[in-house]
Design a protein around this nucleic acid. Structure first.
Lengths: 158, 158
DNA sequence: TATTGTTATACTCTATAACTATA
DNA sequence: TATAGTTATAGAGTATAACAATA
């Protein structure tokens, strides 16, 4: 009796996704994992740990913001933000200044070194994104972006 | 001299995203965080830690698979898979059986309890997803799904 | 009283290494 | 030799609680 070609699912090379495959969230997660994994590599090569890049970018876009606001924006506890800012300062990419308005606060600013790092990282981010998303032509990419914007706006502005 | 209405970005309620806002990956991440956060809550309520649900779903869709294959599929180390399967067994949702083909392997199967949990969790997952994505009508939802599939296929089948 | 930043601490998640039993 | 599963352990990442300074 010859061995069956497809004896059972265990011996298949590719696993089944089953009902998991019906969900958009599942696809989002896999694509996002791919993007963030690839980009973490880029960040680490420049000396930043995953997550510190977005903190630096937020500081750049909001000069003078406090650590508490930064923490809320990137979804960290304020105690975790201390370590992030320590690290950015140690790398010479950002700095704390005393806020003149409220002496409890640290006003955060990027340095020239930090801005240069951001230029480099944003360029790499664009390449990573292009590598993953370029199966879609410019037209479909625009459609995707618009659809995600609509979801994004309804979730975060409500 | 009257105080300016928008003195600087620090006092704004809503922070600027700056160049971060130009990237699709950034929107994906925020939407996905929202979805996975909401769904982790649902999983935990049923006794599963985040990540254990997808393991259970993969076992259900691939009865008899080994721990090593499960680990690869969900992106964990084989040692981490041990703890996941221990947990699922403790909850009576899955079980290990000795593989008849290869006595090193554990063949994994869901139990009736596990299948019932999956039915409940998939229903909740659908509600969570609907809550986040329902700003898009059925037509746009279909477009989004199709676009993500194209990206997904090009990334994971190459 | 509440908030900002800080430290210390604990907890979860994941990875690494060494081991055994099988192949 | 290589693989499957296990254990012990160590390292991130993150959250909680308590505190001093300031509002």
């Amino acid at each position: 009796m010859a061995a069956p070609i497809r004896p059972n699912s265990v011996n298949e090379e590719h696993l089944e996704l089953g009902r998991l495959g019906n969900f958009i969230g599942f696809r989002l997660r896999r694509i996002q994992n791919q993007l963030s994994g690839a980009f973490s590599t880029q960040s680490v090569e420049i000396g930043l740990r995953p997550g510190e890049f977005s903190a630096l970018a937020i500081i750049s876009a909001n000069p003078g913001l406090s650590q508490a606001k930064l923490a809320r924006e990137v979804g960290l506890d304020k105690s975790a933000a201390v370590a992030v800012v320590d690290d950015l300062e140690r790398l010479g990419m950002a700095e704390r200044r005393r806020s003149p308005d409220d002496r409890r606060r640290h006003a955060l600013y990027t340095t020239e070194v930090g801005e240069a790092a951001l230029v480099k990282l944003f360029a790499r981010l664009a390449l990573v994104e292009q590598d993953v998303l370029n199966v879609l032509g410019p037209r479909d990419l625009q459609v995707l972006s618009t659809l995600l914007d609509r979801v994004y706006d309804s979730v975060f502005r409500k």
